[in-house]
């Protein structure tokens, strides 16, 4: 079975965060926004301000799981000439400056066009930890399961409030690093209340054996991070960081990261 012999860099980091603090803070930023350089600087700043694991989004023309804030940012990155290879450049540059595992969050077609195996190999070479695949589920993901097992990369699948027990088990068994808990039915974006369904969903994942479940979608404050870490292993923040970066630059993103990290204290 997968996941039992490969040591997961992301899983290890989350476990350490749980030991030392309330849990892990996972921060999302799109590569190439507002520029490649600034996205690298911003990612480094997130880690320096308490983010444990980085989730770098690859700008894509048809991001069906993304809300308006992230859509605007990724569209800007595309207009500024983002190329797929920039993702590897960014991973390498960030890894040379800070020690945090980096997952790429990517829609599936860019990986298919790059070549699944070639993508995996280049990600390993750049020092990346693995992929989060918002539009690729385990049952459609055979080539990625094979490539990630071959290379030892982490693979994060999603679990939704509407997922059946059988599907939750599929996600838990096949994910490496963590399972991405979709807190609420909807696309990415900050919400004032993180749905109570997240708590229920984490309970359901625990029941089928999950030891690493991180909650995303809707989290934007340190208080919400703290609340989520009462029952989950990590909290994922995206839109709030992207908004800060677009409005107040790298310093703004760093400040928001620091305030989110307060929520990881025990």
């Amino acid at each position: 079975m997968s996941g039992t012999t490969i040591v997961s860099p992301v899983g290890t980091r989350i476990a350490r965060a749980k030991r030392d603090r309330a849990g892990a803070l996972i921060g999302y930023l799109p590569v190439g926004f507002p520029t490649l350089e600034q996205s690298i600087d911003a990612a480094v700043a997130l880690v320096e301000n308490g983010v444990d694991v980085l989730e770098l989004g690859l700008p894509y023309t048809d991001p069906v799981m993304d809300g308006p804030v992230i859509q605007r940012a990724t569209q800007t990155a595309l207009e500024n000439g983002f190329r797929l290879r920039d993702a590897f450049t960014a991973v390498e540059a960030i890894r040379s400056r800070v020690d945090a595992p980096i997952l790429l969050m990517t829609y599936w077609n860019p990986v298919v066009q790059y070549g699944v195996d070639r993508f995996a190999d280049d990600l390993v070479s750049a020092g990346g930890a693995g992929l989060i695949t918002p539009d690729l589920t385990v049952d459609s993901g055979a080539p990625w399961l094979a490539a990630s097992d071959r290379t030892g990369l982490d693979r994060v699948f999603l679990a939704a409030p509407t997922s059946t027990g059988e599907r939750l088990e599929l996600a838990v068994t096949n994910s490496r690093g963590f399972v991405y808990v979709v807190s609420t039915m909807g696309v990415t974006g900050a919400r004032s209340d993180v749905d109570a369904s997240a708590r229920t969903l984490v309970d359901r994942l625990r029941a089928v054996g999950s030891t690493s479940a991180c909650v995303g979608i809707g989290i934007s404050t340190g208080e919400q991070v703290a609340e989520v870490l009462e029952y989950a292993d990590g909290a994922i923040v995206g839109s709030a960081l992207v908004r800060a970066l677009s409005e107040d630059g790298v310093q703004g993103a760093a400040k928001v990261a620091a305030s989110l990290a307060v929520g990881t204290r025990r």
Partner: peptide
């Protein structure tokens, strides 16, 4: 063909 969709929509 196939089905390449967010998990949130698989049940539907």
């Amino acid at each position: 063909g196939g089905r390449f969709m967010p998990e949130s929509l698989i049940a539907a």
